[in-house]
Amino acid sequence: MKVWTVANQKGGVGKTTTTVSLGGLLSERGQRVLLVDLDPHASLTYYFNIDTEALELTAYDLFKLGHQASGEQLMQAVVPSGFANLDVLPSSMALATLDRKLGSQGGMGLVLRKMLRDVTDVYDVVIIDVPPVLGVLMVNALAACERVLIPVQTEFLALKGLERMMKTLQLIQQSRGQENPYTIIPTLYDKRTNASMQAYDELVKQYGKSVWSGMIPIDTKFRDASHAHQPPSIHEPRARGVFAYQSLLTYLLQFKGRDE
Rank of each mutant, 00 (worst) to 15 (best):
K114F: 00
T97W: 07
I172Y: 14
A77G: 06
T193G: 09
M138Y: 12
G82P: 12
Q9C: 02
V36H: 09
A239P: 03
L149D: 12
T220K: 15
T154H: 03
D51K: 09
A199C: 09
A77I: 12
M215F: 15
L162P: 06
L142H: 00
S175M: 14
L98I: 15
T250D: 13
A96D: 11
H67I: 09
T52M: 02
D129Q: 02
V211Q: 09
A244L: 00
L159I: 14
M165R: 03
L116H: 02
D224Q: 14
P237Q: 10
L203G: 12
F255Y: 09
Q178E: 14
T120D: 01
N140R: 03
V136S: 10
G257F: 14
M108Q: 12
T19I: 11
K2W: 15
E56S: 15
K256R: 14
D99M: 11
K101L: 07
K167Y: 14
L89I: 02
L25Y: 11
P40L: 08
E179D: 09
H67Y: 07
V133H: 12
W4T: 04
G71W: 06
V78M: 11
T18Y: 06
V211T: 05
P232Y: 07
Q76N: 14
V33G: 06
Y123D: 10
Q105N: 15
T58M: 00
A77K: 07
W212H: 07
E53Y: 06
W212D: 02
Q170R: 13
V148K: 11
K101I: 00
P80H: 06
F255S: 05
H227I: 13
S233H: 14
